[in-house]
């Protein structure tokens, strides 16, 4: 209960902080739109309204991953830069409960981009978004956000020793868009790619969102999403302790 409160308050705090940097936020919305626009032009040639809706739903999730991958990979570096990392580590709170709200807030902000992409598709490309299971859609979206946020958490802990992790975060943007089938069916990839796709929660998130909108059984992908999110959370928490201990040993907490 206490942990839940800490995560909730931390999340609110981070959301407040993110809302204060509108210029970065603008880019967060514009950036996926460039890719969505390109994809819309490409799918438009097929003259299949279902294909366009498929593309619109997939590209709307791109922004959630973008805002998470770049920001999460440099989350710890940013705390170091502010000089707050030591202050946080010096508190009795478990560090993963501090870090999870940060990456969760970043994926939450991606919802703006999702809305922007769907509206963009609606008004500039006439892609009507008709949702077959509205209730399940409303469940699928936050589940995806949660799972991507926790994937970001795991990422942020994994790359903690990587000084210029923002560059890695940038570079991870396209691979996930591609491998998780945001815009192309997984069946196009060689067989060895498939396990990678399955291990990544965004794959199931985008599938759940699509099935909720286009019709299907989105509950299974929702369950897979939640299961993977829990796994990321546990793995990240286990890793945090090791990482922090090693940082206290090697004196790398305060380095910028």
């Amino acid at each position: 209960m206490k942990a839940l409160r800490l995560v909730a308050i931390g999340w609110l705090f981070q959301m407040k902080m993110l809302s204060r940097s509108s210029f970065d936020g603008l880019l967060g919305i514009l950036w996926p739109l460039f890719f969505a626009t390109t994809a819309f032009f490409m799918f438009r040639t097929s003259h299949d309204s279902r294909a366009l809706l498929y593309a619109a739903l997939g590209s709307s999730v791109m922004g959630i991953w973008s805002s998470t991958s770049v920001a999460a990979s440099s989350a710890l570096q940013r705390e170091r830069w502010y000089g707050t990392l030591e202050a946080i580590v010096g508190t009795p709170a478990h560090f993963s409960l501090v870090l999870i709200p940060i990456t969760l807030a970043m994926s939450t902000v991606g919802i703006y981009s999702m809305a922007a992409t769907l509206l963009w598709g609606r008004f500039l490309f006439g892609i009507g978004v008709h949702i077959v299971h509205p209730l399940l859609f409303v469940i699928a979206v936050p589940t995806t956000v949660l799972a991507i946020g926790l994937l970001g958490f795991l990422l942020s802990v994994t790359v903690v020793r990587y000084r210029t992790a923002w560059a890695l975060g940038n570079a991870l943007e396209y691979p996930v868009w591609l491998v998780c089938g945001f815009l192309v069916p997984l069946s196009l990839f060689p067989d060895w790619v498939r396990p990678i796709s399955w291990a990544l929660a965004p794959t199931w998130g985008v599938r759940a969102i699509r099935q909720a909108a286009l019709g299907g059984a989105p509950l299974w992908p929702v369950a897979a999403c939640i299961g993977l999110a829990a796994l990321y959370g546990i793995a990240g928490t286990l890793l945090v302790d090791t990482v922090l201990r090693s940082a206290r040993r090697t004196a790398t907490l305060s380095l910028t």
């Binding site: 799918f43 097929s46 940038n170 943007e173 396209y174 868009w177 815009l183 192309v184 196009l188 990839f189």
Partner: peptide, 23 residues
């Protein structure tokens, strides 16, 4: 990451979209 991985995956991303849309 910036100059080798990113461009490569941008190529792959759009090439696969291209394969999907047969454009």
């Amino acid at each position: 990451p910036s100059f080798l991985i990113a461009p490569l995956f941008q190529i792959l991303l759009f090439a696969y979209i291209g394969r999907t849309t047969h454009l």
